[in-house]
């Protein structure tokens, strides 16, 4: 219930109009959206039950390793119902394969469509989507953990919530199936991070400071 209540309203993209180059415009718009999504994500994380009981160092570590996974749950969730094969980054930023390819994001497109198809086939509920997002953050396997016991409690609390929810729906296999989707989510997020790091290294687009900082933690 708490996760449903604290789920932020979807952001809208601010269409960049500083260039006539369509692909560059797409990238600039996408990176601006991503940076604002990150700001919202950090505020959201603080409201997950148990997160604020972690040390500041562990809060930082989890966000630094799990931010892209958590954000991609949202993209895959929004893209489930999309007509055709679009990726819905925002209600007003829907990219098809050709647009992604032109922007140098063909790899990301393919990975995200795979993830979206998986969730669509599972017919993910809103409760499952918000819990999966929190689980992705809690389970992000940050390499240095300050207080493993608190982290374990945080993870157990989310796992228990998911189990209780599925038990209430008499779905005994759902929890396991959802957790089994985590490797694909991790893999997709890794490919997304690589795509944005590539854009940064090639200096294709100027990245906002927070996005850069979070990518830097992944480099």
């Amino acid at each position: 219930s708490q996760l449903l209540l604290t789920e932020p309203a979807p952001l809208a993209a601010n269409q960049d109009d500083s260039t006539n180059d369509g692909s560059l415009r797409t990238l600039l718009t996408l990176c601006d959206l991503l940076n604002r999504e990150l700001l919202v994500l950090i505020g959201w994380a603080k409201q997950i039950p148990g997160f604020s009981g972690l040390s500041l160092v562990d809060q930082m570590s989890l966000l630094q390793s799990g931010w892209m996974e958590a954000l991609l749950v949202g993209v895959a969730w929004r893209s489930q119902g999309a007509a055709g094969e679009e990726l819905v980054f925002a209600g007003n930023l829907r990219l098809d394969e050709a647009q992604c390819r032109a922007a140098g994001l063909a790899d990301l497109y393919e990975a995200l469509r795979h993830l979206t198809a998986k969730y669509k086939a599972m017919n993910l509920s809103p409760e499952e989507a918000v819990t999966l997002k929190a689980v992705a953050l809690a389970n992000s396997d940050a390499d240095q953990v300050d207080c493993p016991d608190s982290l374990q409690r945080f993870q157990d609390g989310l796992h228990e919530a998911l189990q209780e929810y599925e038990a209430s729906r008499r779905e005994q296999h759902r929890t396991g199936r959802l957790l089994m989707s985590l490797p694909l989510l991790r893999q997709t997020a890794d490919r997304a991070v690589q795509a944005f790091l590539r854009l940064h290294r090639r200096r294709c687009v100027p990245l906002h400071k927070l996005l850069l900082e979070m990518l830097d933690a992944k480099a």
Partner: peptide, 15 residues
């Protein structure tokens, strides 16, 4: 931590 100062600041903000 110095390298990740925006994240650090955002987490320390009360809201």
């Amino acid at each position: 931590k110095e390298k990740h100062k925006i994240l650090h600041q955002l987490l320390q903000n009360s809201t």
